[in-house]
């Protein structure tokens, strides 16, 4: 098990699918939904490789719409 484990929580309805979080993620955790859209028609971002998340918050920092919250634990 990874020492550092992170989770991002994405407000899917707020997301506009700009993909900047996907680009910013160093661990290839995020992708835009290829089929699903939110109420406003955007392909929102979601975790496709959640086990790789290190909780670095890069995605949240560059998110223009403040849709992302990040949690992290360090497993001892």
């Amino acid at each position: 098990m990874a020492k550092v484990q992170g989770v991002v929580v994405i407000n899917e309805e707020r997301c506009k699918g700009c993909e900047l979080c996907v680009v910013a993620c160093p661990a290839d955790v995020l992708q835009l939904q290829s089929m699903e859209v939110n109420d406003r028609g955007y392909h929102y971002a979601s975790m496709v490789n959640p086990e790789q998340c290190i909780g670095c918050a890069s995605c949240a920092l560059v998110c223009p719409d403040g849709c992302i919250e990040v949690y992290r634990v360090i497993n001892k």
Binding site: K16, C18, E19, Y42, A60, E69, Y71, R72
Partner: peptide
């Protein structure tokens, strides 16, 4: 465990900006 949260001062209004602005 939260390391990043939306600032309290941001209102709930959805911004009118284009995606990625």
């Amino acid at each position: 465990n939260r390391v990043y949260k939306r600032p309290k001062l941001l209102t709930d209004n959805i911004m009118h900006y284009c995606p990625g602005c």
